Amino acid sequence: MTTDTVTTIGGTLVQHGRVSDRIYVMHLSPRDLPGILDDLDGLAQRERYTKIFAKVPASALPLFLARGYVVEARVPRFFRGREDGCFASKFLDRKRRQESADTAGVLAAVREKAGDARPAGLPPGWKYSVATEDDADDLAALYGEVFATYPFPIADAGYLRETMAGDYRYFSVRTADGRLAAASSAEIYPDDENIEMTDFAVHPDFRGRNLSGYLLSRMEEEMWAAGMKTAFTIARALSYSINITFARAGYAWAGTLVNNTNICGGFESMNVWYRPLAG
């Protein structure tokens, strides 16, 4: 599975590469402003990327808007439970900005059932756990089977072990006989006091059991206990199942990132969903 690169520019964490043909500012260091804007433009020009998108505090948004960015999603109290956050994007190719799929139709269908909460539980003998390094091989195998392409190298057991040692937590559901049925992860941003609920994968043999919904509820418990203020996700806009999982769990739609990510074999738009965990 080919993936993009995660690196730093100054104190700002970014991902970029050919797979998703973009730059993603994962964590913006305010100390890098305004110079980071020139750095991002220069990197995009050198590599001929067609999109830059960034998670930006509302206080810094005017600097990005002045440089041609547009707001594709907005999350109230995203940073430390106090300051709004914006997903600001700069399109460097007009074709990248044109939505061709019926993402609005999926979103409308999902919103109709947003209040239709489903109880989440496991069959007798099945077990939920926070994954450890011993689970990395099984996790990588599951991710490799479910995702033909992915923006991060989650089909690499070495990468999973490395991120487990940092600000990632992985979660798993196993059957009574020990098979890995489903997995997910929480990407923790401790300085921002928010977490991305991500990397949901259910083995084809075990779909239709609301395992993603179960994982999400347990993840929220873990992250609330860790003091995180806001949970969010960046979900495939054409996937009814993952969007309904978050809608049913009480998450609010923040916006759609157009042609944002190369996942499952092609470029797709992504929906941002969020939910306050405290206060």
Rank of each mutant, 00 (worst) to 15 (best):
T3L: 03
D4C: 08
T5A: 11
G10L: 06
T12C: 02
L13N: 08
V14T: 04
G17K: 08
I23M: 04
V25S: 06
M26H: 10
H27I: 05
P30F: 08
D32R: 01
I36L: 14
I36T: 07
D38N: 13
A44S: 13
A44I: 06
K51I: 01
F53R: 04
F53K: 09
A54Y: 04
K55M: 12
K55F: 10
P57K: 06
P57I: 05
A58N: 10
A60I: 05
L61A: 13
L63G: 03
F64C: 07
F64A: 07
V70P: 00
V71L: 05
V75N: 03
F79T: 02
R82H: 12
R82D: 14
E83D: 09
E83C: 08
E83N: 07
G85T: 08
C86R: 05
F87M: 13
S89Q: 02
F91T: 01
F91D: 05
Q98H: 14
D102W: 08
L107W: 12
A108D: 15
D116K: 14
D116S: 15
D116W: 11
A117H: 12
A117M: 09
A117P: 04
A120Y: 09
G125P: 02
Y128V: 06
E133C: 10
A136I: 00
L139A: 04
A140R: 00
L142K: 01
Y143C: 07
V146L: 02
Y150M: 03
I154P: 00
M164Q: 11
A165K: 14
F171H: 15
S172T: 12
A186H: 03
E187Y: 07
I188A: 12
D191S: 10
M197V: 09
T198N: 08
F200N: 00
A201Q: 01
D205F: 03
L215W: 00
R218C: 07
M219R: 01
M219A: 06
M219P: 03
M223Q: 03
R236M: 12
A237M: 04
S241L: 10
S241V: 10
I244V: 15
A247Q: 02
R248W: 08
R248Y: 05
G250Y: 06
A252F: 08
W253Y: 15
L257N: 01
V258S: 02
N259W: 01
N260V: 04
C264H: 11
N271G: 10
W273E: 02
A278Y: 08
